[in-house]
């Protein structure tokens, strides 16, 4: 996390696209400043020698937690669809998908 690695406005714009957020030019500038100060504060971690330390992703070590393969009840779709912003013919309705061919 050297200075040249600190987050730039270009990074912020890229990250916003990844996160499906639209930011105004001003928001990009503000977020860049704020994220930079938070990340700079985070330099205290990189100051430590963490070589050889394994990562921890969950606080309590657990493994092999399973569910038996036994069918249970489903939910009435009308209750779910009643909360959906768009539905038609018992399905969720969305604007056209773009991920097709050019």
């Amino acid at each position: 996390m050297n200075n040249e690695n600190l987050i730039t406005e270009k990074d912020v714009a890229h990250v916003a696209a990844l996160a499906r957020l639209h930011l105004t030019t001003k928001e990009i500038a503000d977020f860049t400043t704020q994220l930079r100060s938070i990340l700079e504060h985070g330099r205290d971690i990189t100051a430590l020698d963490l070589a050889g330390i394994p990562p921890t992703s969950g606080p309590i070590p657990l493994e092999n937690v399973f569910r038996e393969d036994v069918a249970g009840s489903c939910i009435d779709k009308s209750e779910v669809l009643s909360q959906a912003p768009g539905h038609q013919e018992g399905q969720f309705l969305v604007p056209p998908l773009l991920d097709g061919s050019e």
Binding site: Q91, P95, L97, G100
Partner: peptide
């Protein structure tokens, strides 16, 4: 895809199951 011939083009929306 909703709309003509179920194609992505000319579709006015999509239904999700």
């Amino acid at each position: 895809h909703l709309g003509k011939s179920g194609r992505i083009h000319a579709s006015y929306g999509a239904l999700v199951d």
